[in-house]
Write a protein that binds this DNA or RNA. Structure first.
Lengths: 226, 226
DNA sequence: ATTTATTTTTAGATTAATCTAAACTTTAGT
DNA sequence: ACTAAAGTTTAGATTAATCTAAAAATAAAT
């Protein structure tokens, strides 16, 4: 019946994130960077998490989550993303604002609260950034998404997510009307700087940089009738 | 720009509560009891709060909140009660369940969140227990409530609040259908144990103990037509 | 008014989380 | 293979919050 602190939860989340994207043991330095703290602090914390059986830890090698640790981390992700949906859909926050507040809300401890919230929101499968929300058993729904940059000229996709989550990027997308659900067709690709000309929702055309097209996820759409 | 911890917030809330009900300086022991901790810990904390100018503190005398401290405490009460309304009205929690979860939610730091929540809930003036919710400026709305036990036989009142907030009491009230808004008429008072016979919503009659009638607040109603 | 009881404060320790600086492993480069 | 660089761990300190036990101040009681 060991209880777990908010700080420990944040470490688990960081480890989860690193292992998820790189798909290998998380290094001390990577965790330190993710947590914005020193490697020494991480080293200390890893010992504590190992003693609580939340991570597999051998000195000098990286760490991975145990089953318990992984469950806890997944539940945090579930809570975080459900709160994000709440903030956006019910309280009219914008998608660049929700993360920061959800960082606090995700630590509220009440399984019943989360199940009720999930129900209140209509069991959403994705958060405001298009990231999947694991269900109560920890299962993520999968979607066949690719970077917009991988579409060839003439191909069409629907925006379903973002790679980068920074507020500035999200605000840029809002300004450009490149929100989730938007239909984009690649009209032309410039070899020079890899920028692309897009047709947005079969209407106006805009030019976006390579950085933007690499950070936008789309679901490929079959060629439109027109 | 001193930041304030959750623990400090809880102490402020405790002091606020004691000063509010007793209307005089809060003693170390009273705070210790309210916080379920030792007098020594309280003594330590009082020094810290005094250094941060959140309380007026002189050794051996009690403490009172400074203006800043009082504002912080009132805002905590506002957050707590708004979250309680949310839990009850939107997530279908019962009034005996909401307090515990709101104890956590009240520490979420985001003024914007609270204003949006307030708006989402339709600017409620009272929480699920009938306690007033201070507005953004810290003003509480006032209501002329009296204990049910002070009604004379023949008099009628509408239940608007509770003195005691324990889950067992609240569950008892639910079972007896003595919820907020219920109309109760005192039919008879037994001198022997101060229990009273009530007519509930002009329908069935029930007997309640003195303890119950002392812990229920009503607003006196003019004699009914029938 | 002096003793007793209660309340409050201090002293000294403990735990979680953090830091900097130093020591130690591992990896990489020539 | 050896040295340099990078990454990781330990050592020693610090801060917030807590505890128990002891000392000091106030209040109550004979």
């Amino acid at each position: 019946m060991e209880s777990i602190s908010n700080t420990e939860e944040n470490y688990l989340k960081a480890i989860f994130k690193i292992c998820e994207t790189d798909d290998r043991a998380a290094s001390t330095n990577a965790i330190a960077q993710e947590m914005q703290t020193s490697a020494a602090s991480v080293s200390d914390m890893l010992k504590r998490l190992a003693k609580k059986q939340l991570i597999h830890y051998e000195k000098w090698k990286g760490v991975t989550l145990t089953d318990t640790g992984s469950q806890l981390a997944t539940n945090l992700v579930r809570k975080h993303r459900l709160w994000e949906v709440f903030l956006k859909e019910k309280l009219q926050f914008t998608w660049d604002e929700v993360h920061e507040i959800a960082e606090q809300l995700e630590h509220i401890r009440s399984p019943k609260l989360i199940e009720r919230l999930d129900q209140f929101l209509g069991h959403p499968k994705f958060d405001p950034h298009g990231d999947p929300i694991p269900d109560a058993d920890g299962n993520f729904s999968y979607r066949k998404q690719i970077p917009l940059s991988s579409l060839k000229p003439g191909e069409t996709g629907v925006i379903v997510g973002v790679q980068e989550h920074s507020p500035t990027f999200l605000q840029y997308l809002d300004r450009m009307k490149l929100v989730l659900g938007t239909r984009v067709r690649v009209m032309e690709q410039f070899e020079y700087d890899e920028s692309v000309r897009l047709r947005v929702n079969d209407a106006q055309e805009i030019l976006v940089s390579n950085k933007v097209s690499q950070n936008l996820f789309v679901e490929k759409a079959p060629p439109s009738s027109k």
